[in-house]
């Protein structure tokens, strides 16, 4: 009994620390793609936290939305930003001499 409780406390502590660390890395890492991937991992760990807090309904919603759909939305938006970036770069290169007149 005592050992089980201790194990649960250890699990909670590791999970809480991992949540904070993943959030920090997702918000501080210089690469946006890496940040999004870390954020998806953060969402998956949140689903684990909901299970630990006796909230299986929330865990189901978080696993489907927080980890799946939000990640897909973020990655699609990043892809759009970068494709936009390339066309913009080509555009600017074409007009470079005129700009510096």
């Amino acid at each position: 009994m005592e050992a089980v409780t201790l194990l649960q406390w250890a699990f909670d502590a590791v999970l809480g620390f991992a949540l904070l660390w993943l959030a920090w890395r997702a918000l501080a890492s210089p690469d946006l793609f890496l940040a999004i991937v870390l954020f998806i991992a953060f969402g998956l760990l949140m689903a684990l936290a909901w299970v630990r807090l006796d909230a299986p309904d929330v865990a189901l919603a978080e696993a489907a939305i927080g980890a799946g759909l939000t990640g897909a939305l973020l990655l699609a938006a990043l892809a759009r930003l970068e494709s936009n970036n390339e066309t913009k770069a080509a555009h600017e290169k074409d007009h470079e001499p005129e700009v510096h007149d």
Partner: peptide, 19 residues
């Protein structure tokens, strides 16, 4: 994009407190 991620992390924190 980083600001949007930050708002999502803030929201997750609030949800965690509530649950």
């Amino acid at each position: 994009l980083r600001k949007i991620l930050a708002i999502n992390v803030m929201g997750s924190g609030v949800f965690l407190v509530l649950v």
